[in-house]
Amino acid sequence: MTASREIRLAARPVGEPAPQHFELVETTVPEPEEGQIVVRNTWMSVDPYMRERMDDVESYLPPFQLGAPMDGSAVGEVVASRSAGVPVGATVVHFLGWREYAVMDAAAATVVDTALAPAEAYLGALGTTGLTAYAALTEVAPVRQGDVVLVSAAAGAVGSIAGQLARKLGATRVIGSAGGPLKARKLVEEFGYDAAIDYRAGSLAAQLAEAAPDGVDVYVDHVGGDHLVAAIDALRHGGRIALVGAISTYNATSPVPGPSNLFSLAAKDANLRGMLINSYFHLFPEWIGKAAGWLADGSLHTELTVAEGIAQAPAAFLDMMRGGNVGKMLVRL
């Protein structure tokens, strides 16, 4: 039988996760049953939402189980198949990451076209990462011609795409917030932002007032906390906020208070709307049709931060949670 390795949840963290909360385990790959496939994973994704799944609480996805392999988005090559619809050699995306080999029902995998884009792109710009930016700026907090748009975690997986997309959708000024001078420089030089806020360099509110003295129309929130407060203060009449994430709160050990200025949204006739990406999967064909062309002609710039090997997956996850990535954080298996 084929040997494989996988990452299991060894203990539930209280506060910030650490290496001891993960366990690397050697295992063997079972033979596929009728209708199943075996996939040799080549890339896997680590994402902020996984931190919430480390806690034993009810959410839109079930929590990771102690002593069981973790899961998440991955892409790989089919090496064995008992399904007529998914042949050996096909490249598929699926949700059994955090392991070198995965056995699954063929219906749980989606065949992707690597002639259109590299396999790893289907975990980034052509995956739920890119779709999140697209849904946020077209459905949740739609950009209108002439808007000023603010994006937090702007050098991250979704944010690095969102800034460029806002421009394509008609924004006249796009402002990004990120941590550190390197990321701030990349926002302007490589990811299409007009102005960058380094939230580590001083008052976030003061920097935002300088970058957008007349306020903002759209805010894509990945951070929560002080970023959300500052964005609400700067929001213009009729402004829109997409609540995509709140990474500043994910390691909290007690309930986090909401923004103190929340009710000011009423006087601004503004909209603050959460989004769950599963609700926007119907936009995938539309998004891939646009984004694949932009990737091909170079008008959509993406970056990857890559860790090598399954053993480095926990470190990649922890690094991503601390903001160590530019663009999408992936593990090459």
Score class of each variant (00 low, 15 high):
Arg5Gln: 15
Arg5Ile: 06
Glu6Ala: 10
Val14Ala: 14
Ala18Phe: 03
Pro19Val: 12
Thr27Asn: 11
Val29Gly: 09
Pro30Ser: 07
Glu31Gln: 12
Pro32Cys: 08
Gly35Lys: 09
Ile37Val: 15
Ser45Gly: 11
Pro48Ile: 00
Met54Ile: 05
Met54Gln: 10
Met54Cys: 02
Asp56Glu: 14
Tyr60Ile: 13
Phe64Ser: 02
Leu66Trp: 05
Ala68Glu: 15
Ser73Lys: 13
Val75Thr: 12
Glu77Cys: 12
Ala84Cys: 04
Gly85Met: 11
Val93Asp: 03
His94Phe: 06
Trp98Lys: 04
Arg99Ile: 08
Ala108Asn: 14
Val112Leu: 04
Glu120Arg: 15
Leu123Met: 06
Leu126Lys: 00
Thr129Ser: 04
Ala136Arg: 00
Glu139Tyr: 02
Glu139Leu: 08
Pro142Gly: 03
Pro142Trp: 04
Val148Trp: 02
Leu150Asn: 07
Val151Met: 00
Gly156Trp: 03
Ala162Leu: 07
Arg167Met: 00
Leu169Lys: 07
Ile175Gly: 02
Ile175Lys: 02
Gly176Trp: 01
Ser177Val: 15
Glu190Asp: 15
Gly192His: 05
Asp198Tyr: 00
Tyr199Met: 04
Ala201Phe: 01
Gly202Phe: 00
Ala205Arg: 11
Ala206Met: 06
Glu210Lys: 14
Val218Gly: 02
Gly224Cys: 05
Val229Pro: 01
Val229Leu: 06
Ala231Trp: 03
Leu235Lys: 09
His237Val: 14
Gly239Leu: 01
Gly245Val: 02
Ser248Asn: 03
Thr253Lys: 05
Thr253Cys: 06
Pro255Glu: 09
Asn261Leu: 04
Ser264Gln: 13
Ala266Asp: 05
Ala266Trp: 14
Ala267His: 10
Lys268Ile: 10
Ala270Gly: 13
Asn271Gln: 14
Leu276Thr: 13
Leu276Ala: 13
Asn278Leu: 14
Asn278Glu: 09
Phe284Tyr: 12
Phe284Val: 15
Pro285Lys: 09
Trp287Arg: 01
Trp287Tyr: 13
Ile288Val: 15
Gly289Gln: 08
Gly289Asp: 15
Thr302Gln: 12
Ala315Glu: 14
Phe317Gly: 04
Gly323Ser: 06
Arg332Phe: 01
Leu333Met: 13
